Simulated assay, not measured.
Amino acid sequence: MPYEPPTHTVERSLRATTGAKIIAGVDEVGRGAWAGPVTVCAAVTGLRRPPEGLTDSKLITPKRRAALAAELETWVTSHALGHASPEEIDDLGMTAALRLAAVRALDGLPVRPDAVILDGKHDYLGVPWRVRTVIKGDQSCVAVAAASVIAKVRRDALMAELGLESAAFEPYAFAENAGYPSPVHKAALHELGPTPFHRLSWAYLDAMPRWRHLKKVRISVEAAALEGGGQLGFDF
C-alpha cells in the first residue's frame, strides 16, 4: 500500500511563525518493550528533499529500513541518540524516562535546536524546549520520519548485540523481537526469569508466579530525569 511521502510543511510553519532556523525532529522506539532501553533520536534535516521511500519506520521492511537508515545518517544535517535504561524506566516511569532520553539526544546535537517537532499528541519534553507535537509525525514530517528510522534501526542493533553477550540470553531471542513481547520471549521469561536487561516494573511479571517477587514498585524520582545526567545501566 503506497503512503504519502513526508513533507517539510511543519518545519516551514515553525520557521514562519516562530523564526526557528534549526528544527529537530524527535521520535522514540522501545516504549512498549519488556526489555532494553527506550531510545530517542533527534534529527535535523533542513529543507532538502529526503531520500526516496522515507516514512514511518514501522511501515518499512527490515531490509529496506536498514539501508535507509545508513543513507539517512549521512544525509541529515545532524542527528544524535539518547537512551534511558531499564533501571531508569523502572525508577522514573515511562514519561520521565522518555524525557530523559530525549534530552540526552537533543544535548548530543552539535547545535541546540530552536524548535522540536515531537511525534504524537503528548509533549513529554516540556520547557525550556519549544515543542510542536504532531500526530503521526513519523509519517508526515521529514525530520521526524528520519528520526524514526534511525532510532528503530539503531535500537534493534543494540538489542541484537545484547542478546549475543552470553549464551544465557539466547533463549529470549532479542535479535528477533528487540525486547518486545513475543511467544518465544514470553516462554523464556516463564522458564528462566528476567535478565539484567528487563524492566522489572512491567506488568508481565504479574502473570509469572515464579518471578513475581522481583517486580519493582516504582518510587518516582522525577528530579533525576530533569537533570538529564543520570547514568545508564549498560554501556549503550
Rank of each mutant, 00 (worst) to 15 (best):
Y124M: 09
A187H: 07
D156G: 10
L162F: 14
D119V: 13
A167E: 15
G163Y: 07
A160M: 03
E176H: 05
L162K: 09
Y124G: 06
L118R: 12
Y124R: 04
L158D: 00
L164D: 13
G163M: 04
V127C: 02
A151N: 05
I150W: 07
P181F: 11
W129F: 14
Y124H: 11
K152D: 12
V184G: 01
S182D: 01
N177S: 06
A147W: 11
Y180I: 11
S148D: 03
A168H: 05
V149C: 03
A151I: 13
G108E: 01
V127I: 05
L164V: 03
L118E: 02
L162Q: 04
A143D: 06
F174L: 08
L162D: 00
A115Y: 03
L158H: 14
W129N: 02
I150F: 08
D114I: 13
D138G: 11
Y124P: 02
S182R: 03
P171E: 04
R132G: 00
A168L: 15
D138P: 07
A143P: 06
A151P: 03
V149H: 03
W129V: 04
E170M: 14
L189E: 00
R154Y: 08
V131T: 01
K121E: 04
A173C: 05
D138V: 13
V144C: 11
L189R: 05
K136V: 08
G126T: 09
L164S: 13
V144F: 00
F174S: 01
W129K: 04
P128V: 12
R130A: 12
P110S: 12
L125V: 05
H122P: 00
A168M: 11
R132Q: 14
T133S: 14
Q139E: 14
R112C: 09
S140I: 14
E165Q: 15
N177A: 11
A160G: 13
G179W: 05
L162T: 01
V134M: 10
L118N: 10
A160Q: 13
A115M: 09
E191W: 01
S140E: 03
A147G: 03
D114F: 10
V111A: 09
K136I: 07
Y124V: 15
S148M: 04
H190N: 00
H190G: 00
V127K: 14
E161G: 00
K152Q: 05
E165S: 04
S166D: 15
L162A: 10
L164W: 05
D138C: 13
P181I: 11
Y180W: 08
F169T: 07
A147N: 06
A187T: 10
A115G: 11
P171K: 03
